[in-house]
């Protein structure tokens, strides 16, 4: 972890993202101001079309805002060129997608190694770290399996291992349980709780209240604006699920 602890990891100031022009102008994100502190576990909720996915793309540097200022770990990302944006995504952000987005016909180990390849980590070190990450998500015995040979829950755990292997400052998850059955969902959420308990910063986009219940802070979005901002647990405390395990939760 770098930087002073009081500096927000995510710092959005009056950020907007619009699509189209004139009559068809759409404000996907409309003047959002948001700070996320290191170690927080934030759930962003809202119906489809509320702008939560666009916000995740802005936070993840996959897309650029139309207006406003965004500092990721203190860096104004708009000033970065393509190469530097790739690097900042590689170093500072770990992505977990709804549909896993593993590279097909490529083993779990190679998938997890991939961000380290782009970071220029030597092969031996890469393998060691990838193996450790896979062990952490409980897939040490599946390293040579390709995505087609893994269940949805296992694929998502590989994706989480891939997201965490570079030790990014934030883990960004977009509907991480959207394509999973309830058992696999619980496994994934339990992993997130573990990561949060270890001090990782997590931002999870979801429309399921059950997923949001795991977060320390819940944002409600509507029409591109943040409607409500509730805190369920302090930033430096363990996530709520580890304090009051809900009934039926495998822990």
């Amino acid at each position: 972890m770098t930087g002073p602890p009081d500096r927000p990891v995510i710092d959005l100031r009056n950020v907007s993202k619009t699509y189209g022009v004139g009559e068809t102008l759409v404000h996907a994100v409309d003047g959002v101001t948001l700070q996320v502190q290191r170690g927080d576990y934030v759930a962003v909720m809202g119906p489809s079309g509320s702008g939560k996915s666009t916000m995740m793309n802005l936070i993840g540097c996959l897309d650029a805002q139309t207006r406003g200022l965004y500092r990721l770990d203190g860096v104004d990302v708009r000033l970065l060129d393509d190469r530097q944006q790739s690097r900042i995504r590689n170093r500072k952000i770990g992505f977990v997608f709804q549909n896993f987005n593993l590279i097909a016909r490529t083993t779990a180990l190679s998938n997890v190694e991939l961000p380290l390849v782009y970071a220029g980590v030597p092969a031996r070190e890469r393998r060691r770290r990838a193996l450790a990450a896979l062990r952490e998500v409980g897939l040490a015995d599946r390293i040579e399996h390709t995505p087609a040979q893994l269940s949805g829950g296992q694929q998502q755990r590989v994706a989480i291992a891939r997201a965490m292997v570079t030790e990014p400052v934030i883990l960004l998850a977009d509907e991480p349980t959207g394509a999973l059955d309830s058992h696999s969902s619980e496994e994934v959420l339990a992993l997130f709780d573990q990561l949060s308990a270890h001090g990782r910063t997590l931002v999870v986009i979801t429309h399921e209240a059950g997923v949001a219940a795991h977060a320390k802070r819940v944002l409600q979005m509507h029409d591109g604006k943040i409607r409500s901002d509730e805190r369920n647990a302090p930033v430096d405390a363990p996530p709520p699920a580890l304090r009051h395990p809900p009934t039926g939760m495998a822990s």
Binding site: L62, R87, R89, R91, I103, A104, P115, R162
Partner: peptide, 16 residues
């Protein structure tokens, strides 16, 4: 295209 998107998301640059 998706694979390219994934690679870019996790840190591949244009040149890669």
């Amino acid at each position: 295209t998706r694979e390219i998107g994934i690679r870019k998301a996790i840190g591949a640059g244009r040149s890669d």
